[in-house]
Design a protein around this nucleic acid. Structure first.
Lengths: 244, 244
DNA sequence: CCGATGTCAAGAGCACTGCTCTCCGTTGTT
DNA sequence: AACAACGGAGAGCAGTGCTCTTGACATCGG
């Protein structure tokens, strides 16, 4: 109705959004400096020159601020992984897997505290709201898309074959095992072979383990050239899991 | 000189040790309830009926208390893994690997906060003192002992063969890759084939990834029967890595 | 046996935290 | 132009880690 660029939201709402973004950015800087556990609303308020109580007008609680940072971190990580994959999207599955792994690792090294926020120890009294489950699945979804649809011309039988060759005959998966990861099968497109999903989960688990080990410092006394080691382990894992 | 059970330490030192133990136990209970990040010295003092300032006579800082809990946790996890392995020590390497994995997972499920303390997000301003590196290596040492010495009669050639079959010719490892994990090779007994150590590291990485995923809640919407899934993934990983 | 010495517990206090409530000026809306 | 909603600041509460001072106690030497 008015001349505002966003008709549905008045000028009031616009500056509110801008201030919210400003606070979130300040909080992200704080996060990068002192880590998630030590993130302080008062320190964020100080950085933007605001009273601490005023911050609560924009984020009803410290947890809400953390939730915002968590969602943003999931999104940033997902974006980084997708960008890395896009750059080699026409290459082999093995190369695309490798690119995703390095994309995830590079982002984690550049933003260790954000990585720790989403993949480290959960905050004590903090329950992840449903807003986070979407962005949280971005990298796994990318991996599943990579493994599930490498060939656009419906040669899926080949994939099923190689999967079957790994353990036992084709489709002879223990029903108890099959049921154990039924939830993820439900959120996957139909037609994905269970063993492929299982190997995808294992790949995702390994990627998480390797990156977390490095980010959390458990490889300091173990590996001297983490990049080289990481490249080898993810490539080798892809060979072993026959992801390609 | 006196009738005390511990002659080197006087009565004074003995009650001091007992009180220190009492405080550590109370802190462990607190840890199990509210988690490491929310562990409060005052709450611990309250639980043992002591003034908060008095606690600092025994632990010079909150970090020192946490260090104690970290060391104890590493030790408890190591003990759990060793006990699980001892129970099947005469079995195949594959079964012993499986037992270790379940031992680690079971301990983590029983003590999630202690697990998070040692394998989760590092405490912000906290630098792990050298006291922790010993206990921290207990499970990896157990794994390496399992892989390195399964056959007491010097049939090591067989292991080397199967290892070589995985990637390229025997001993033809890229020198850059070989150098990347030189530190861990240095703390391993001589004669361990580099590729075996590498696969051991990958196994340890995967075990950590799988357990952490479950403990930190990232498998809630993915897996409905975590025990079955875990058993399969670790057994399958052992097959793929040819640990047996 | 008594006094010197060293240890320990308690309390007050500092600077910090998340969060609530009240007060009040500004400002967009009608 | 009048109004009501909004957003800011400040005080205050209950909690935190940590330090310093004070006072009681036990231990040991002479």
């Amino acid at each position: 109705m008015t001349h505002h660029p966003t008709p549905s939201a008045g000028a009031r709402a616009r500056v509110r959004e801008e201030l919210t973004l400003l606070l979130a950015d300040a909080a992200r800087r704080q996060l990068a400096e002192v880590g998630g556990a030590a993130l302080s609303v008062r320190a964020v308020a100080r950085e933007v020159g605001m009273s601490s109580s005023a911050v609560f007008r924009y984020f009803p609680s410290r947890d809400a601020l953390l939730t915002r940072l968590i969602v943003d971190s999931y999104d940033a990580l997902g974006r980084a992984a997708e960008r890395a994959e896009t750059a080699v999207h026409e290459d082999t599955v093995a190369e695309r897997w490798r690119a995703i792994c390095h994309g995830v690792r590079d982002w984690a090294l550049a933003h260790p505290h954000e990585y720790a926020l989403i993949f480290g120890t959960p905050i004590p009294g903090y329950a992840a709201p449903s807003d986070t489950i979407g962005p949280a699945g971005r990298v796994p979804a990318l991996l599943m898309a990579l493994l599930g649809g490498p060939d656009p011309h419906g040669a899926g039988a080949g994939t099923a074959e190689s999967a079957a060759g790994t353990t036992g005959a084709a489709g002879a998966m223990d029903p108890v095992l099959r049921a154990s990861f039924a939830p993820i099968m439900g959120s996957l497109p139909d037609g994905v072979p269970p063993d492929l999903a299982l190997r995808g989960l294992m790949a995702w688990t390994y990627l998480f383990g390797a990156v977390s080990f490095e980010i959390f410092g458990h490889r300091l006394a173990v590996v001297s050239d983490p990049g080289t080691f990481f490249d080898h382990e993810v490539v080798r894992l892809a060979e072993l899991l026959e992801l390609a």
